[in-house]
Design a protein around this nucleic acid. Sequence first.
RNA 1: GCGGGUGUAGUUCAAUGGUAGAACGGAAGCCUUCCAAGCUUCAUACGAGGGUUCGAUUCCCUCUACCCGCUCCA
Length: 599
Amino acid sequence: MADPKTNDLMERIVSLCKRRGFVFQSSEIYGGINGFWDYGPLGAELKRNVKDQWWRSMTQQREDVAGLEATIIMSPRIWEASGHVQTFADLMVECPVTKKRFRADQVEESSGIVYKFSGAKDASGKTSADAFEVMVPAGKPKESALKVAKQFYQLRGLAAPEPIDNGEPAKVDKSTLYSPDSGARLSDPRPFNLMFKTFVGPVESEDNVAYLRPETAQAIFAQFKNVLETSRQKVPFGICQIGKAFRNEVTPRNFTFRSREFEQMELEFFIRPDEAVEAICGEVAKPKGPGHPGEPQTNWGWQMWHQYWVEERIRFYENIGLPRTTLVEYWQKPEELAHYARATVDILFKFPFSKKNEKGELMGEELEGVAARSDFDLSQHQRFSGKSQGVFDEELKISWAKLTPEKQTDLTKRYYETRFKYLTKTGVQAEQAERTAKEDAAGLAKGNYVPHVIEPSAGVDRLTLALICNAYAEEQAPDEKGKMEQRIVLKFHPRIAPIKVAVFPLLKNRPELVKKAMEVRDLLRPHMTVFYDEAGAIGRRYRRQDEAGTPFGVTIDFETLGENAPDQKDTVTLRDRDSMTQTRVNIKDLLGVLLEKVR
RNA sequence: GCGGGUGUAGUUCAAUGGUAGAACGGAAGCCUUCCAAGCUUCAUACGAGGGUUCGAUUCCCUCUACCCGCUCCA
C-alpha cells in the first residue's frame, strides 16, 4: 500500500492539473462521468506535443515506417479474428462471502459435502430469507459449514446469525458451482464485456452490432496489404497509428491512468520469420547482452528486433524528459505472456501511486508494452478473411535456391512445425492444420511467408500523466524580501512544454516597454507557443509560468530601451525556469537561441 | 461489481436547522526598475434528486463523482 505521504503528492498534482487547466473531469457540470477525462488548454498542448514527438520520431524521421489513420468502428469480424469478441464475452461468477470473482470457465472442480440453509435469524429477532449453500470437504464437521454460513448472513446485517437448515447435506462430486476460496455457492454467471457496443444504422438489432475499438493495433493488421502495396515498403517495415481506443474497465482508477476512453500510439513492425532470415543470411543474429543493438541489420531475428524496439522506446522517453531511473523495464514471465506472444517487455514509470516492493522501491505502472507477437495477428486475419496476408520476398527466393538440400529440408521442417503449432493452437483440426502447414512450408521455398510482428504499444494519456508527475517539483525560493517561500514548478522538457516562452514588459504602465514586449511576442509567435502577460509584479508572473511549466521567460526592461546602458540597447532578460537565472540576449539572436533550446 | 472514506468559491479550508466566511488564486484599476510586494474594487461555492421540517448546505434516503482496499486490466 502506498503511504499517505505519496497519496498527498498525487492529490497535489491532481489539484495543480485542475488549477492550471491541464485536466478536467469530463461532463463536470453534470456531476462527472466515471472513467472519462478532458484536457484543458495546457493539457491539450502537452498531449499534442507528446503525440507530435512520437509521430515525428516513429515515421517522419524513419525510412521504414509508414503512418495510418483508421476508423474507430470497424467490421465486427476484425474482433472475432483478434479474439476480442470471445475473450471479452467471458462469463464471470462471484463468491458471495469473499466477493472474489472468477471466470466461469476457470473455476476449479471441487468435491465434498454440501450443506444447505434456507435463511437465518439472530438473537435480536432479525431474519434473512436468503438461501445459502456451502461445500466442505468430506470428513469435515458441520461446524465448518456453519462458520461460512454465519459469515454469509453477517454480511446481510445479522449480528449473531443462526442459519436454518434446509434439508439433508448432500454429497457432490467434481462441481464448479462452489467457491475455491470459501466453498460458498457462487453467483450465477454474468457476461462481462470490456468492449463498448453500438449499432450501425437505424435498427438496433444483433445483426447491426459493432464495437468501439479496444485497441488501435487491429486496424493496422487489417490494412496491412493496402499499406504494403501503396507505400513501396518491403519487410522489414512498420505501420504506425495514433488514435482513440475504448475499454469498459471495471474500475477506472488513478486519475487519467486507467480511463474508459484513451489514446494509443502503436507501431506494428513487420519482420521476416527467423527461418527466412537464416535462409538469406546463413545465420540469425541474437542479442549478445543488454543495451541498444545499433542500426538494424539484415541478419536480425525477432529477438534482436524486439530488443532494438525496447531500447528505441526507452530512448524516446529519455528524449522527452523521463530519465531512465524513473522507468522500469519489466520482462513478462512466461506464464504472464498472452497466448500469441513470444516475449513482452513492459516499460513502466514510477508513478506516485505505484505500489512498492519489499525494499520500498516504487514498482511502476505500465506506459508501454513491447510485444513480440509472432505471425499470430496476420495469420488470424488471413484465416478469418480468407484473403492472403503473406508477402513475396524476392531476396528469400533467390537465396533459397542457393542453399544445400539439407539446409532446405531443415528450414522447411522447422517452418512447418511452427506453422502447425500455431494452427492447432487456434483450434484448426489436426488434419487440416497439417495440410495448411505443409502449403506454408512449400511457400517459404518460393519466397512467401506471413510476416512476424514486433509491437511497441504506448498509452498517450498515461505518458502525459507520467510527464506531469515527473515534472512536478516543490521548491523553496526567496521572495522579494528574501523570505523563503514554496515554489511549485513543472520542469517539463522544453520539447513537450505546453508554452515554450512567456514574454513580459517589466512594467505595464510604461507604453514603450509594452510596445516593445508586444513586438518580441509577435517575433516569436510564428515559431512557438508564446504567452504574453503584463499583469502584476514581475515575480508573480514568473511564478505563474512556473506552474504552467513554461521553460523560458523573456522580460523587456529599461536596458532594452537603451535608457540605462547604451550598449545593452535591444537586449532582453532571458529567465530560465529551473535555475531561475537570467542572461541578457540580443533581440536579434533571441529566436535562434530559443529554437535551439525547444527542439 | 463489493467494502470503507470524502464531496462547501478555481484551490485549500471554516461555520451553521433560519440559504455561508477566510486564505491563496482570478479579473479590473492605481502603484511598482526582475522572482507570488502594497492599496482599492469586483466576481465566484453548499455534487444531483427525493424525504422529514414552517424552513435543510446542515438530519434521513437514493443517485452520482472522487480517493483507498478487493476485483478487473486477453
